[in-house]
């Protein structure tokens, strides 16, 4: 595949704490074509979340380049980056990170508030997203009235409501029981197959990883291919 959707070239990342350099990622090269479903695995502290954050444009590499769909993410200004994220990235967190004061509908609607969509257009899109995740009947529920699995599905609806081409998920099943995890994986798999979303997912769970097509292993900041 010549055309890569997500491309990392010689990416290095270090954190600085008290003038001490903590190297986290070391010379990462990664190329993900559009429509791919990648599972990113590796021991705790190996830099998986860091890598995902670099692709999402919520963190910047110390060296090297990150590009998504031809856009050099690492070179955008903060404001441009924020706008870019809102259009191109759907992010799914391990702990769902829904707004507790907003109900399911409002949580999913949140990213759309940054668009020029009218109220009715927003409504339609939110309903579509919630229908895809199978929670159209829970729109008025608040996060504390939902199970963990349902919360994560609302979070996935929030991630897809702007129709981004890339979905990044950081241990999306890490906090779920087996059945809920299965449902969430089923959903991600469907988004990949039916809607051709490119997905990069960090996971520790081998069962979750089964749904992916490509497995990458991070160890001590180095990326190994692992078919």
């Amino acid at each position: 595949m010549s055309e890569s959707f997500v491309e990392l070239r010689s990416v290095n990342k270090s954190y600085w704490r008290d003038r001490l350099e903590i190297p986290v990622l070391n010379n990462i090269n990664l190329s993900v074509p559009e429509g791919e479903f990648v599972a990113l695995m590796g021991p705790s502290g190996s830099g998986k979340t860091t890598l995902l954050n670099l692709i999402a444009g919520i963190d910047r590499p110390s060296a090297g380049e990150v590009s998504v769909n031809g856009e050099s993410v690492s070179q955008l200004s903060e404001g441009a980056l924020a706008r870019w994220r809102s259009r191109n990235i759907g992010f799914v967190f391990q702990f769902y990170n829904l707004m507790p004061v907003l109900n399911a509908f409002e949580n999913v609607e949140l990213p759309l508030l940054l668009t020029r969509l009218s109220r009715s257009e927003r409504r339609r899109q939110v309903e579509t997203a919630l229908t895809i995740v199978g929670l159209a009947d829970r729109m008025k529920h608040y996060p504390n009235q939902l199970s963990g699995g349902q919360e994560q599905r609302v979070a996935i609806a929030r991630a897809i409501v702007t129709d981004p081409r890339l979905i990044l998920a950081d241990e999306p099943t890490g906090d779920l029981d087996k059945v809920s995890a299965e449902e969430v994986m089923e959903l991600l798999s469907r988004l990949n197959k039916e809607f051709n979303k490119t997905i990069i997912m960090v996971t520790h769970d081998p069962r979750a990883a089964e749904k992916a097509h490509v497995w990458r292993h991070l160890d001590k900041g180095e990326l190994n291919n692992k078919q």
Partner: peptide
């Protein structure tokens, strides 16, 4: 803090 971080991730400025 984490809610604001999530909002920023979603593209809020």
């Amino acid at each position: 803090v984490s809610e604001y971080a999530v909002m920023k991730t979603l593209g809020f400025r």
